[in-house]
Design a protein around this nucleic acid. Structure first.
Lengths: 156, 156
DNA sequence: CCTGAAAAATTATTCGC
DNA sequence: GCGAATAATTTTTCAGG
């Protein structure tokens, strides 16, 4: 699961359509990419087995779910040796409210995207979950006031 | 498209399953939530029409696509009046490499998540696209070294 | 590697209860 | 909301270029 796959123009078209509508049928998809069903079905299968298509997911409206509060958290660790980073990474993956987490070069160590129902719930998550992550030394929170672009498709 | 919808425990189960696998059939889904197909199909339709399920998308592996370079960009604007913000928001949505964009309270004005093939492409996007967004006054870039959690499902 | 059509399997939908 | 029957689609397969 690491090296880039080779995809031609037709594969890109297929990926593009599936990114817009994961439930499109092979019949429709074949029509849109200008091929018959047979090669399209085979290509989809190859893309899935190669890991380029990692799965299919329903996109939810956070607002409709009442989960409209987004906070970014910069985290600095007290220990940045490999073992500490590994422990931190593992613990982060166990907190469902953490939607994204990247290790950052320079300035601070990690950036988290946290989604909650409201500020009160964010404070609870911060106090109970994030502060308790291993080796956390300091955090800075940045509250989102508006989602301008949210969970956009990967641009091909 | 704004007020939270009312969803019961069964709806949440349905949503949960569809978030893990958008291509599951109503038959399978009905078995998993412990109901017959009829009400499950009706609930799915209601969730779609109510906007809680916004669509279905294939999840792609950025690494397999060769799009493994993620940078977060803090942006400060020279003009933060409503009209300027609106212009900025509109322009941001036209840049496909910007995967996310949130307006932030305090410290800086916007946080962008930018995905590119490599650093060279990031520099091009920064120079040609991001710097050219309306009213941009200053930017700070933070390069991601590792994706610990990437595009996690929304936690119900 | 793709086409086109036939066959087989699933799936969604529609009832009365 | 259930469960069976119907009806519609879909995926798969295969001979042929």
């Amino acid at each position: 699961m690491d090296k880039p796959m080779q995809v031609d123009a037709i594969d890109r078209k297929i990926i593009h359509e599936l990114q817009q509508n994961a439930r499109i049928s092979v019949t429709d998809l074949a029509r849109r990419v200008g091929l018959s069903k047979t090669p399209v079905a085979a290509r989809i299968k190859a893309l899935e087995e190669g890991g380029l298509i990692a799965g299919y997911r329903a996109m939810l409206s956070p607002i409709k779910l009442g989960l409209s509060h987004v906070t970014y958290v910069e985290v600095r660790l007290s220990d940045t040796r490999e073992a500490a980073l590994t422990r931190f990474n593992t613990a982060v993956r166990a907190v469902p409210e953490i939607e994204e987490c990247y290790m950052i070069a320079g300035g601070f160590d990690y950036l988290l995207k946290v989604r909650t129902r409201n500020i009160a719930e964010y404070r609870r998550v911060m106090g109970d979950q994030i502060s308790a992550l291993p080796h956390v030394h300091a955090t800075s929170s940045y509250v989102a006031m508006e989602a301008v672009v949210e969970s956009a498709a990967v641009s091909l």
